[in-house]
C-alpha cells in the first residue's frame, strides 16, 4: 500500500470523516459505467479494508459506522435509484432479534446497499414475528444481528420454527456474542457468521455465486 494507492487515499478520508475530501476522491464521473466502476474499485474495497482494520483493533466502531454511512450517502447520490422491477438476486432480509440496539444491523444494511444488494429491513422483531415474515416473503438469505447472548441463543428457536414451516433460508448471524465465542454460530443453527459488515458482504456475495438455480429469480 502506498500513498498513491487510491483505495488507501479514499479510506483515509473516510476514517477522518471528511465528507468533502471523500467526494473529491471519488471523482466526478459522468457515465453510468464509470460511476459503477468507482463504487466497485474504491467504495467496496475501502469498506472491506476498514472492516479488516476493525477486526484487528486498528480502527473504532464509530469510524466503521461513519464510513459506511458516508459511503451509503455517496453511492445513493451517484448511482441511479434501484429498479423497481425484479432484481437479479433472491429475496434477502435483515433483522435485529429482541433488541433495540440497531447499529450492527444498520451497518450491514448500509454496506450491502453500497455494494449493490437489495434487502428487506425488518428492524427489531421477536422470534415469532421474524419467522412469519421470512415465510411470508420467501426469504432465501436471512441476516440476523444480536447484541446479547440470550438473543443469540434464541436464534436456534427461529431456525427450528423455520424448519417446521418448511422454510430453509441461509442464515448469516453477527453481533458481539459471536465475536466473543467463535463457535456460537454453529450452536444456534446458523449457516455462517460475519465479524464485520464487510465480511457479511463477502459471505453474501460468495453465497449468491454458489446458490443453486432454483433460488435464483
Amino acid at each position: 500500500m502506498t500513498r498513491d494507492d487510491p483505495v488507501e487515499n479514499f479510506l483515509n478520508t473516510l476514517l477522518a470523516m471528511d465528507r468533502v475530501a471523500a467526494k473529491r476522491a471519488l471523482g466526478d464521473q459522468t457515465s453510468a459505467d464509470a460511476r459503477l466502476d468507482v463504487v466497485e474499485r474504491l467504495v467496496v474495497p475501502s469498506l472491506e479494508r476498514i472492516g479488516d482494520l476493525w477486526e484487528r483493533g486498528e480502527v473504532s466502531l464509530s469510524q466503521v459506522y461513519m464510513s459506511g454511512r458516508m459511503c451509503e450517502e455517496m453511492v445513493n447520490a451517484i448511482l441511479p435509484p434501484p429498479d423497481p422491477g425484479p432484481v437479479d438476486q433472491p429475496p434477502m432480509a435483515i433483522a435485529v432479534l429482541d433488541d433495540y440496539h440497531l447499529l450492527g444491523k444498520r451497518m450491514v444494511y448500509s454496506v450491502l446497499r453500497a455494494s449493490g444488494y437489495e434487502l428487506k429491513d425488518y428492524g427489531t422483531v421477536d422470534g415469532d414475528a421474524l419467522v412469519s415474515r421470512v415465510v411470508r416473503d420467501g426469504i432465501v438469505v436471512l441476516l440476523i444481528s444480536v447484541l446479547m447472548l440470550p438473543s443469540a441463543l434464541r436464534i436456534k428457536r427461529v431456525r427450528d420454527a423455520l424448519d417446521r414451516a418448511g422454510c430453509h433460508p441461509f442464515i448469516l448471524v453477527g453481533g458481539a456474542p459471536f465475536r466473543f465465542d467463535t463457535e456460537l454460530w454453529r450452536e444456534v443453527g446458523a449457516d455462517a457468521m460475519a465479524g464485520t459488515a464487510a465480511e457479511g458482504v463477502t459471505v453474501v456475495r460468495k453465497l449468491l455465486d454458489q446458490l443453486p438455480k432454483e433460488h435464483r429469480p
Binding site: 470523516m17 464509530s62 459506522y65 461513519m66 433495540y100 440496539h101 440497531l102 447499529l103 444498520r106
Partner: peptide, 15 residues
Amino acid sequence: PVMQMGFEAYFNLMF
C-alpha cells in the same frame, strides 16, 4: 446515551 437514544443516533449526535 447508547441506551438513552440508540447507538446510531448517538454517533450522529457525537459527530
